[in-house]
Design a protein around this nucleic acid. Structure first.
Length: 345
DNA sequence: AAGGCGGGGTG
DNA sequence: CACCCAGCCTT
């Protein structure tokens, strides 16, 4: 199976990379000796997040927390505020926790030390140790999976299969550059739907290209069904200052949001609203509208009501809090109404 | 091994 | 719309 001419493949891809590498802000510094804090932050930010989007958060995050000591010393709410809108908020909380460990003990000196940090898995440990320590560790991400699946024309690559192939082709002389090269190729040439095979430095060696059906590799992953979720929320206050509660648990955990109750199975929406009003000691006012929000694995519909609550907790600044997109949409309902008071129709 | 976890880009 | 994105953690 490994009749692949590894030495030729390495030379071809690294030559292409030396000419076409993306210019990215976390790539400053000598090859294999990049700044560990910057590389680490970028890798966490880019987990399941496209580079173009990660770029919009990276500069802001580094400006807010220029060093690992600054990050470690910051309140978690500030870290989440910097992460607002980026999704997968456990990344920010784990990064913050890990920063406290690193500020105390220093940066890990090898792959295993990185892997032990919260939020750092096999991919991130391989990326950071190869890029900052020159360690020969092959990354396995979505780009690598697709590039290698096509190179070998493997339709259903398992994680172990990808890692084994990645370990074989990794250039031990330039592990950091090799890892970046495969990911750049996957992101800019060997793309999922419309690969630019004529521009690919590996086309001559690529079994999927030889088959004439490069996009058939790898086969699409099976995906979980989207769950429909419906709930009610109260807006106690206005669009600038409102009663917010901290979300606990894995879904949006750590963010703030409007007081919300999910409608239970076989429950009427009114009953969910009553539960919520009772919990907040609130009197429900007029309905403000309904917002919907998609989140990959669920589709949420939120019915928002104005409410008053004499003994409710202090309202807080809405702009200073870290909120999910769903809560931003809910608050926008009231902003639209307030605006309409001054905007004759 | 499988499912949960955000939000947006692409064809 | 389907499918994917510099994955990780929990069960």
């Amino acid at each position: 199976m490994t009749s692949l001419p590894v030495l030729q493949v390495r030379a071809a891809l690294l030559a292409w990379f030396d000419a076409h590498a993306r210019d990215l802000p976390w790539r400053a510094g000598a090859e294999g000796r990049r700044d560990p804090y910057r590389v680490w932050v970028s890798e966490i930010l880019l987990q399941q997040t496209q580079v173009a989007r990660g770029l919009t958060y990276y500069d802001r995050f580094l400006a807010a927390f220029p060093t690992v000591q600054a990050l470690a010393a910051a309140p978690e709410a500030d870290v989440l505020k910097a992460w607002e809108g980026c999704g997968y908020y456990a990344r920010a909380r784990n990064l913050h926790r890990a920063a406290k460990e690193v500020a105390e003990r220093g940066f890990p000196a090898a792959y295993a030390g990185w892997l032990a940090l919260p939020g750092v898995g096999p991919y991130t440990a391989a990326a950071v140790s190869s890029l900052t320590l020159g360690e020969a560790r092959a990354v396995n991400d979505g780009n690598v999976r697709r590039v290698l699946a096509r190179l070998w024309a493997e339709k259903t690559p398992t994680d172990a299969w990808v890692q084994a192939r990645a370990d074989e082709v990794l250039d031990p002389a330039r592990p950091g550059a090799w890892n970046e090269a495969v990911m750049d190729l996957g992101a800019t040439v060997c793309t999922p739907r419309a690969p630019r095979c004529p521009e690919c430095p590996l086309a001559a060696h690529c079994a999927a290209f030889g088959s004439g059906q490069p996009t058939a590799y790898p086969a699409p992953k099976l995906r979980a069904k989207v769950r429909e979720v419906e709930g009610v929320a109260l807006l106690i206050g206005d669009a600038r200052a409102a009663v917010l509660e901290r979300r606990e648990g894995s879904l949006l955990g750590g963010l703030m949001g409007l007081p919300t109750e999910e409608r239970r199975e076989d429950e009427a929406l009114q009953d969910a609203l009553s539960r919520l009003a009772a919990r907040m000691g609130a009197q429900v006012g007029e309905p403000l509208g309904t917002v919907t929000h998609g989140m990959t694995h669920r589709r949420m519909t939120l019915h928002v009501y104005a409410a008053t609550a004499p003994h409710a907790p202090q309202s807080v600044s809405v702009s200073a809090a870290a909120l999910s997109r769903l809560d931003r949409k809910a608050l926008a309902l009231l902003e639209a109404r307030e605006g309409s008071l001054f905007a004759p129709t």
